[in-house]
Structures are given as C-alpha cells and as structure tokens.
Design a protein around this nucleic acid. Structure first.
Lengths: 191, 191
DNA sequence: CGTCTATTTGAATGTACTCAAAAGCGGTGG
DNA sequence: CCACCGCTTTTGAGTACATTCAAATAGACG
C-alpha cells in the first residue's frame, strides 16, 4: 500500500529507514466510492491527500449552481483545498471521486510535526509546490491565449489517460466550455 | 536597501545575525527603467527577484503577437519565470518594468547553496509557494465563474493600489478582456 | 427492460470581440 | 509655455464564437 508513495517521495528526497517508518506512521488510508466526497465546500479541509488509485475532481460551485472543475487528481497526485488546509477556514472547493478511489491522508498537525521531525520534507513540498505552481501558470496562460479547440487538443496531449477515463462533460468543465461546445469541437476535429 | 526584504523574511522564519549577513551577501541589487526588461522570452531566467520599489508585469506573447499579462509584481512581491528558473530552459514569459523599478536578485546556484547552508529557507519558499499557488487557483476559478465585470470589481477590491497605478489596458490584459471592453465596463459601472 | 444521465444536434441569442475612428492625455521639444 | 506627437481611452458598428434552450439519440446502470 505504501510502495507508490515511498517511491514518489524518494524521487525528491532520500529517507532513512527510520524516517520512512515515521512518515508511514502518520498516513491514513481512505477508500472512497465513486461520487463520494473527500472535501465538501463549507467544511474545513484537514488533510493533504495522495492518490493511490482512482481519480478525483476539485470543483467550485458558483452562485448560479454551475460546477467548475479546477483540477483532476489521479494516481500519484496530491489534492486538497490548500487554502482551507493552510488557513483552517471553510473550503470553497468540493472534491469528490469520479471513480472508486483510494488515498493516503496526512493531517495538518501531523504534517507540521513532520516538517519539524524530518525537515527535508520542506524540500519535498517546496518542489511539489513549484511544479504545481508552474502547471497552474501554464493553465492560466493557455486559457488566455488559446481558443477552446486548442485547449482541448492541449489537454488530450498532456493527459491522454484522463481523456480516456473521464466523462466528456467533466473535461468540458475543466476546459471552461459547455458540454455542447466540446461535443461540437470533437465532431469538427474528427472530420 | 535590505530592510524591507529582511522584514519580509522575518515574517516567516527567524534568522540569526550570521544568517542575515549570509543571506544579504547573495543578493544583487538591480535598477530598471520603465519599459526595461527583467526577463525576455527566449532567455533563461537565472534569478528569482524580490521587488523593492516600482512594478513589473509578466506577460506571454501568443502566436498572433497579442500580449497576455499573467502577473503584476509590485513592492514585496517575488517574480521570475519560475519554469525557466527551475528547469534552465528558455523562458516563455517576458517580464518588464511598468515603472522605474528596483529589485533584489538571487541567482539559482546561490539559492541552491542557501537551501543547504540555511535549510529553513526551504520553509520560507515553501510557504511563499503555498500562498502563490492559492492566489493562482483563485484566479483560475474566478476566470471560470465570473463575467468580466465581476472580475474587474474583484481586481479593484483586491489590488486597489494597482488599479490606481497601472494603465487600463494592462489591467484589461490581466483580466483577459480587451481594452475596449474594460472601458465599456467602467462606463457602465459609473452610471 | 426501463430509467436516468450523457452526448449529440439544431436554432436562436448574447457577450465580448474586431475594426475603425474620434477624443483625451501626457510628455517632449521648439 | 504652448504646440505637437504618440499613446491611451472612449465610442460606434458589425461580427463571431461559444452560449442557452430544447429536443433527440445514445449509453450506462440497476
């Protein structure tokens, strides 16, 4: 159960057996059924979650009730409402499972203790955040400089597996277009 | 010259006098005139920059020659093309000065050495990145869930000083609308 | 098999865009 | 100090891309 997260962590920092044991001891395993919530808007997000299996979506529900997908998280991705996790305020995002999913959770206080006990985890999470920041920045720029068709093609290229696994209307939401528009774009591209 | 960055750093981590001295020793002071580039797309971005004074814009130039502002950076903000800085590849962003500007620069190798010599800087930059990540996520969600008028109002509320200081067409670009649209939105709001 | 949801297709609409031109503003030099 | 030039902002008219609303088809799940 822990091999994938240990392998993942070892890409960035080297852990002693003792540190590995300690790290594993603070992880909680959690299973979610399809459609089950990991985080609900209004709750406080108390965990950082590492995806072992399955896929989650983070989405915002606006005033008119429309859902806007901000992120998909499949195997070896981290997910949370980071803002809520950091500040302890109510989450504005929902996170739910698009498939049956398993995650490993780190509670906030346990993570803070981990930073103290094994400071090199600061390095790990700094690097993860750097990568996440760059990915988000690319997304912002793509949204500004590309039309819907180009954004879809970019998505397919970058996440071919997600394109296969996920319902089209979820992808449409991530791309910030309507399901109808994505359907027409795909028709156009296939001709 | 160094008081504002030291004060800034001390918000997050406590430095000994020795560490302060070392930190300051790796900083390079640089002045930019209005319109001068800090980073040009195609170059490698070799510095992380802390703004002492003035204001910079980060922007992407698309295939059609249009500029898209991804970020403004005024006093006490950090700026760089992080992707280029981290990977050593060519920058895709331009960064230039909207006003006469002064920055403190940290070169990549100096920063890496700093992480080794004073590991708590990992904590600092992890926290900075957390905040930057959350800010970017908010921006993505706002772009998806709000119309142009709401995004403008949000910008004014969040950055009242920038609203005052910056030319309207730069703000329009940041909001991902045309200068004409922003002009019409402001007219509408003032009536 | 039937129900519920997802996808596709069509038609009309709208928000923000493009293109064009006028007005306003600021900086520079005569 | 004023006149001019260039850039920014405003305004107008027509356009386009994606949207909304509606309905039909297809697919998934119990």
């Amino acid at each position: 159960m822990y091999s994938s997260i240990l392998q993942y962590v070892n890409n960035y920092i080297a852990l002693t057996p003792k540190e590995e044991t300690y790290f594993i001891s603070i992880l909680k395993h959690r299973k979610l059924l399809k459609r089950q919530y990991l985080v609900q808007a209004g709750d406080v997000c108390r965990y950082e979650n590492f995806v072992l299996k399955g896929c989650l979506r983070s989405y915002y529900v606006d005033d008119t009730g429309l859902e806007h997908v901000s992120q998909f998280s499949s195997e070896n991705w981290w997910t949370s409402d980071l803002s809520s996790f950091l500040t302890g305020k109510e989450a504005s995002l929902n996170i739910d499972a698009l498939e049956d999913t398993e995650v490993l959770q780190i509670e906030k206080s346990a993570l803070e203790q981990l930073y103290i006990e094994v400071p090199k985890f600061n390095v790990l999470f700094r690097i993860l955040l750097q990568n996440a920041f760059v990915a988000q920045q690319d997304r912002i720029i793509q949204r500004m400089s590309m039309d819907a068709t180009q954004r879809y093609l970019m998505f397919v290229q970058k996440y071919p597996n997600l394109e296969q696994r996920l319902p089209q209307h979820q992808i449409a939401s991530y791309l910030d277009i309507t399901p109808e528009s994505l359907s027409r774009i795909r028709k156009q591209l296939s001709s």
